[in-house]
Simulated scan of single mutants.
Amino acid sequence: MDDVPDDLMTNPRADRVRAVHALTTRAARRRTGTFLVEGPQGVREAVAPGGPPVHDVYATPEAARRYDDVLAAARARGARVRLGDEDVLAAMSPDAQGLVAVVALVPTGLGEVLAAGPTLVPVLAHVRDPGNAGTVLRAADAAGADAVLLTRSSVDVHNPKAVRSTAGSLFHVPVVTGLDAGPAVQALRAAGLTVLAADGAGDHDLDDLLDVAGQAPAGTPDLARPTAWLFGNEAWGLREEDRALADAVVRVPIRGRAESLNLATAAAVCLFASARAHRTRTAPA
């Protein structure tokens, strides 16, 4: 750690500290074109090769010693590394865990996603809770989804809570924001994806669809095909006009006495069902 800067930041009210803390607001993120990444796991993924530009990384001396590999990776990416005491990092973010990064916002367009030939894409419509949005993005990454789309009425996925909830998956999966649901669904369908809406009152049972994946009869959605899933608001689910956009509406079967599944759990079940069905489609004869 001989190359760690010597000028320890000790003033939690300094302008630089205030500027970093301001990134907890959407206005500051839009104004600066940057967002805040908190904690060792998120910062580690942010500074990995191939990630977005990283402007600054701030660490306590203890975190710098513990995560010297993360700081080395940050420097290799051209980031400025500064040390601050615990009060400074806490002022930047109460969730810093001794380490934060200021990262550039790099917009991704829907056309770019579609040009890559996606086979699994969740679409979040009117999802307002940052924790839920981040958890769905993490599940999408784990299931091998090609991108995550959010409508303009959904939460800002660069909200600090959303970023934390992704556990670094924000840097693994292209994310397109600010979309109108109707045109986005039309574009997905034109690109060859079947559009399925997840809803507890759906006409099709997810388990039944898995049973016939790859050999679904006419009129039945085939989970083995490239698929986009529509997921709705945490409290009221998908609006009727959003359900009407889909080729079919699918329900996750509930075997026990639970009234329903929360958004993130239902999304994970649907995405992994598609991932399983896609293995059937690509398996050697």
Rank of each mutant, 00 (worst) to 15 (best):
P253E: 01
V249G: 07
L263E: 08
I254M: 13
P217T: 10
L245C: 03
R251M: 00
F231W: 02
T220G: 08
L223K: 05
A228I: 04
D222V: 01
G237P: 02
L206N: 12
E234R: 14
I254S: 05
W229E: 03
L223P: 00
H204L: 02
D222W: 10
D222P: 07
A267E: 01
P217S: 11
N262L: 13
R251W: 00
N262F: 12
D203E: 15
V250Y: 01
D222C: 05
D207F: 14
L263Q: 14
A218R: 11
L210V: 13
A244S: 11
L209K: 10
N233P: 07
W236Q: 11
L230S: 03
N262P: 09
L271C: 08
V212N: 14
A228Q: 08
L209N: 08
A235F: 13
L223I: 03
H204P: 13
A267N: 11
V269P: 04
S260D: 06
R255N: 05
T227K: 06
V250Q: 00
D203S: 15
A267F: 02
L210D: 03
P226A: 03
G214W: 03
V212S: 11
A266P: 09
D222G: 06
L238P: 02
D208A: 15
R255L: 12
L223M: 05
A258I: 09
G202I: 11
T227C: 00
Q215L: 14
A213I: 01
C270M: 13
C270R: 06
A244G: 05
L230F: 04
A213T: 07
T265E: 09
P253H: 08
L238S: 08
A246C: 02
L261D: 10
P221N: 06
D211M: 05
G202D: 08
